[in-house]
Design a protein around this nucleic acid. Structure first.
Length: 288
DNA sequence: TGATATGTTATCTT
DNA sequence: CAAGATAACATATC
């Protein structure tokens, strides 16, 4: 769920609302979620928020960073004095803060930053900013599609690189799209949507795509990611932005989650299979 | 009650 | 080594 557009949505919110604010205290309610010494960051100010694929780095002004991966159900929510009324806050997804899913609380000089996580798969790591690139979650990250934001210095996925990545790979194209080591940022929702848009069947072997199909799919990936970002991400499950508001992209899915419903293009029934251990949705008529 | 949900990593089989 | 399947993590929701 939180894939590139959702994490970028969080990043934009944090950039706007917590950069410049000082950490005055840290409360860790669930120890396994946070690694590192909280003492290192007390007194430091947020300087910059970077994104690497689906991960974030909250850089402080004292050479330390808080690296964050929200995995499936993590939420980073800021309560700041300049946002008095938040009209679209999702009560169902957030409710009172802190709540029973709030595992880490950063108290700021002006406001609070909460980390919530229903499934507890996400993590936060306090590390030296200079050592970010040595982290496993970054070392093996592939180039990421360009969706109009540059914040991390990550390599971008060009059409030439994409052709190189799919060349000679007999893995299915959908599994390849979701492989973070090959392409960073694309998860199950956007892989399904991009393949539908490009008219390519998810089980096709990557190496069997024609030159034309490779270009079409490359363009489709960028298009759906940009669309997701435009709608503030997809709140299919627990995703909310840095203010606790839902995204809207789930209202525009073509195939994801549409099993047994008519294809928006041709009216045929959308199929569901499992690929890479994940629900895979496609139209037999429109994708081949 | 049981199926389903996703990101990542580990493990096992082919 | 490549690829594919499956499970594990933890829990809510339908």
């Amino acid at each position: 769920m939180p894939e590139l557009p959702e994490v970028e949505t969080i990043r934009l919110g944090l950039e706007k609302y917590i950069v410049g604010k000082k950490i005055v205290g840290v409360e860790v309610r669930l120890k396994k979620i946070l690694q590192g010494e909280t003492l290192k960051i007390v007194g430091a100010k947020f300087k910059k928020i970077r994104r690497f694929g689906k991960a974030l780095s909250l850089d402080l002004d004292n050479e330390y960073s808080i690296a964050v991966h929200v995995k499936m159900t993590g939420q980073l929510i800021a309560k700041v004095p300049e946002v008095q009324k938040v009209p679209k806050v999702s009560k169902a997804l957030v409710g009172e803060l802190p709540n029973k899913f709030t595992h880490v609380i950063f108290r700021l000089d002006k406001g609070v930053l909460y980390y919530n996580d229903v499934r507890q798969f996400g993590w936060l790591k306090i590390i030296q900013t200079a050592k970010i690139k040595d982290q496993n979650f970054l070392k093996n990250l592939g180039p990421e599609p360009f969706v109009g934001q540059t914040s991390s210095g990550q390599a971008f996925l060009t059409l030439e690189k994409f052709r190189e990545i799919i060349r000679n790979k007999s893995v299915s194209i959908k599994v390849l799209l979701m492989d973070q080591k090959r392409i960073a940022g694309v998860g199950n929702i956007y892989a399904n949507e991009a393949l539908f848009l490009a008219g390519i069947h998810p089980t096709r072997k990557a190496m069997m795509l024609s030159s034309h199909e490779a270009r079409k799919l490359y363009q489709a990936i960028i298009k759906v990611l940009k669309l997701g970002l435009k709608y503030g991400g997809a709140s299919e499950n627990t995703f909310v932005n840095a203010l606790g508001e839902k995204g809207e992209y789930q209202n525009y899915f073509s195939v994801y989650g549409q099993a047994n419903k008519p294809c928006k293009n041709c009216g045929n029934i959308v199929k569901r299979i499992i690929l890479g251990g994940r629900g895979t949705f496609y139209c037999e008529t429109c994708q081949y």
